[in-house]
Amino acid sequence: MYGGGNVFETMKATALADEDPILLAAFEARIDRGEKIEPTDWMPQLYRKQLIRMIEQHAHSEIIGSLPEGTWITRAPGFKRKLALMAKVQDEVGHAQLLYSAAETLGKPREEMITDLINGKSKYSNIFNYPAFTWADSCFISWLVDAGAIVNQIANSKGSYGPYCRALERICAEESFHLKYGHHCVIHLATGTKTQREMMQAAVNRWWAPMMHFFGPSDKISVHSEILMKWKVKMASNDECRQQFLDMYVPKIWELGLTVPDENLKKNTVTGEWEFTEPDWEEFKRVINGDGPCNAERIAVRRTAEERGRWVREALLAPKAKYVAPLA
């Protein structure tokens, strides 16, 4: 699941001018031929830096994203839903491991990434800074947040960096279960009793704004993003992903008799583009910079797990303790 729109940092144009032109040309030729880049290949600093940032954010999103869903495992309605949600959360944490490993091949150790996460230095998908009040919220996440992430991940799996592509292929294969499971949960509520329908509608109302934020603000057309597209780091713009998501899922929401809380949302039959009320990007900025309803809790829970699990890791690393049978 869970990889959202990426916000790329800007870098000085001079950084690229410092690269060896011959190596750079060979690198670009390899990408143009459609061949993937592997870890020991020469690559420009900008490429390495942006990939680490992107893959690391994606990994953190998997870890943090499993928190609002994980919290619903014990309260999921029925044994089968509990089993399925447990399996899904296990998948998500597994995805984080795959992604951390892919980022590690670029030179940043996993423990450093985790340290940056729990110290608030790295970002993760903003949508998980919102709380899951009801079971229907958990269903919304499983179906539509995953759906949004799949749009991004399928695009990225055609990128140029071998280890990231391999991880994403594995991840996308597992996402098909998440998507079907989430849809199944939402259908059950939406076609159920009046109370169930109202609960599902309330969840859609709560999550629509964060869902529109999920793909990130419109990309500025800059030399920088042009280079990242050319190097197949960035495979689709945030707007393209948002449009694709709306195209695939708004009809599926509507067919269940649910409404979307945006009266301007409609598909322009002439352009084929979806029109919608511009998301509140001030709120997006405020939340991504730490002032959302759950930012502090997400980081605190992750940090506590890290601290309270330390003795286990230390015990595993120092297996010198000798077994002595009890004395009496």
């Binding site: 089968k80 089993l83 399996a87 279960f177 079907k180 199944h184 259908i187 059950h188 939406a190 067919e255």
Partner: peptide, 20 residues
């Protein structure tokens, strides 16, 4: 015993059709 991990275990087309 782990069918619940597979996408194929979540068919719901009939339910949507009946609802419509």
């Amino acid at each position: 015993e782990k069918q619940y991990r597979e996408a194929t275990d979540y068919k719901a087309a009939d339910k949507i059709k009946a609802f419509k």
